[in-house]
Design a protein around this nucleic acid. Sequence first.
DNA 1: AAGTGTGAATAATTTCACAGCG
DNA 2: CGCTGTGAAATTATTCACACTT
Lengths: 291, 291
Amino acid sequence: MSQQRPGGQSGQPGAVPALPDLPEATVARLPEYLRALHNLAESGNDTVSSEGLAAAAGVNSAKLRKDLSHLGSYGTRGVGYDVALLIEQIEYVLGLTQRRAVALVGVGNLGHALAGYAGFATRGFRIAALFDADPSRVGELINGLVVRHIEDLTETAAAESIAIGVIATPAAAAQSVADQLVAAGVTSILNFAPCVLSVPEGVDVRKVDLAIELQILSFHEHRKASLTSLPATGSGAGKLRPEERSDEGGARRLPGAFSERSERSQHGPAGGLTALPGGLSATGTEEAVGT
Amino acid sequence: MSQQRPGGQSGQPGAVPALPDLPEATVARLPEYLRALHNLAESGNDTVSSEGLAAAAGVNSAKLRKDLSHLGSYGTRGVGYDVALLIEQIEYVLGLTQRRAVALVGVGNLGHALAGYAGFATRGFRIAALFDADPSRVGELINGLVVRHIEDLTETAAAESIAIGVIATPAAAAQSVADQLVAAGVTSILNFAPCVLSVPEGVDVRKVDLAIELQILSFHEHRKASLTSLPATGSGAGKLRPEERSDEGGARRLPGAFSERSERSQHGPAGGLTALPGGLSATGTEEAVGT
DNA sequence: AAGTGTGAATAATTTCACAGCG
DNA sequence: CGCTGTGAAATTATTCACACTT
């Protein structure tokens, strides 16, 4: 049963993939489920329904069940999912049974914060090395790790079996750092610099850009404001024209007045989640980056 | 022409929306285009083709054209897009014609880094206030701003017209902070704490979770490793079983050996982008969070 | 020619709704 | 009965390919 896509990418009929190739959207949500499950486990729950887990993870239950079904799923009808078993399964699928070594490049403002991030350790990773190009920073001790010069990257990457590189440099340096990471054999990169990286096939890059997140929020603010301040401007404003210099002041404070889709994609807005039933508080015990 | 969805959410036939309601996926990409456009403008280009802009933004040109067509689009056939005009349009749509005020709650490790983030200012936002719950931190001066106690939030939010709240507290405090932000009239929240926030309808929440990003990368690492280390294990390994205690050592270093889809969703991997044609370097001038 | 804008085709994702198991 | 697992439907997103404009 399950296993919707038997053959994977390779058309070869005989080969069975060692791992199911999950839809990307599902992969992106598994970590969220995992966190919720850990919270539940800590609260003493040893079983949970799709409804309960979905609420704790901020998705709807149909989506959750579909996602879990892709892993072959380990629920019991009429009962729910065994929390410990599901944790084990998801951690396995995500490759978290081994603690992966992370190299952080760029120990500026953000780099410092990341180097001190406790969530690294608690969620399956180990910061193994810090690098910077600035000689005046090399040698500095951060959180028990010494900052090395970027030129030592290749050597260190091999010695520490670096699996993931995190780029926290200015944009101007990011591509060069990425090239060096790739040359050192790193095939997964998390990029905090606001620029597009070009990497060879087989290398995964994920990007986090604070300003982009804010700009997306800004769009929705703009949208909400334009909907409320001109409630029924029947004519005019045919299209979008920068002339509308409104201050968007209109009415503040009216939650419940709109009816956008109540759930959003990816890391997007988690608005409109049905309030949690009872003891399943969504508030966890882990800390934010930094504390 | 264009304007695929004339009526917007409201079924009312007479009402014309002040803003087109763009697909979420498009909204999420507009900031990336905007950044690329600013880079192009700085490099002296005053016009760009969809091909060129797409390359600079890390997407393919068909997607870019479709995205831009949703805004009514301002290109010239046979020529391309006017860079300055497109910048103006996108900034308008994203609501960046006004500099929005941001309140940052939690000035720990990460909060400090965010408070010093230059991209805030350069990309349309103004950090207007810092808050923390820890009395020993209140009064501290960060980047020219004094840290206030969280209790002053409502008052300050009104005085400074805070549009967006950024939560950089431990997870345990995040829900409470979100409640206070909402109570103060803030309808957009960027959450760095690893937990799901429950907010009333009409409030947008976006989440950034470093550990989740790493775990997604971990999945792909795991996947790549299992594909290469057992190249043709015809039988066995029928499903996913945590027994496989392999070290995934196998073969390191083989870019170009796999053939995943060469482009990825949302903020996901930007792998496989065709190398930029000529002068359009994707490397910008902006800095990463922190520097 | 060169390159946008867009219908139509395809693919991915989400949601529905319910059969069937414990 | 309650709740999972899942086909089928609905929705959303991406890609193709080309008519059409400058």
